[in-house]
Amino acid sequence: MAARPKNLNDTYIAPTYPYLKPIIVCGVIMALSARREVISPGSPLYDHLLSRSPNAIKTATWIQNGLFYFLFGGHAIESAMFTKRLNDHGVRLFSVSWFKWIGTCFVGGNFVFKYFDRAVGKAA
Rank of each mutant, 00 (worst) to 15 (best):
C26F: 05
F68T: 10
D10S: 08
E37D: 09
L50G: 10
I24D: 03
F68N: 14
I23Y: 06
L20I: 11
L50R: 11
K6E: 01
D47A: 01
N55M: 09
T11W: 06
V25K: 08
P22I: 04
I57F: 12
P22T: 05
L32A: 06
V28A: 04
N7G: 00
R4V: 15
A60K: 13
R35W: 11
G27A: 03
T61G: 15
W62Q: 09
N9M: 11
P18V: 00
K6P: 00
A34R: 12
L45P: 02
V28D: 00
K58G: 12
S43G: 06
L20G: 02
I39N: 07
K6N: 00
S53Q: 14
A31E: 06
G66C: 10
D10C: 07
L49H: 03
I29R: 02
P41L: 11
Y12A: 14
K21Y: 08
G42L: 05
P18G: 00
A34C: 14
V25D: 04
N55H: 09
A60H: 12
V38M: 04
P54Y: 05
L50I: 14
Y69A: 08
S53F: 15
F68L: 15
P54E: 09
S51Y: 02
R52F: 04
A31H: 04
D10E: 05
P15V: 09
Y12E: 13
L50A: 10
L50N: 05
K6Q: 06
L49A: 09
N9Y: 13
K58S: 13
A14F: 14
P54N: 09
L8V: 04
R4A: 15
W62C: 12
K58A: 12
H48C: 00
S40K: 14
C26M: 15
I57Y: 13
N65E: 10
K6M: 04
Q64F: 08
P5G: 05
N65T: 11
E37F: 05
E37A: 12
V25L: 12
L32H: 01
V25E: 06
S33Y: 06
D47F: 00
E37W: 06
Y69M: 07
V38D: 00
P54T: 08
N55W: 08
R52S: 04
Y46C: 02
Y12F: 15
I23C: 06
R4I: 15
E37K: 09
Y19V: 02
R52Y: 06
P5F: 04
P54M: 05
S43D: 05
A31C: 08
A56F: 15
T59I: 14
Y17M: 03
A34I: 11
N65M: 10
P41M: 14
G27P: 03
R35T: 05
W62E: 08
G66V: 09
A56K: 15
I57G: 08
S51E: 02
G66R: 07
G66D: 10
R35M: 11
W62M: 13
S53G: 14
L49P: 01
S43M: 07
A14D: 06
I23L: 11
L45S: 02
L50M: 13
M30D: 09
Y17H: 03
V25A: 12
C26T: 07
V25R: 10
A14L: 10
S53C: 14
L32W: 01
I23F: 07
P15S: 09
T11C: 11
P5T: 01
Q64I: 11
P22H: 02
Y19A: 02
R36D: 12
A14K: 15
K21N: 07
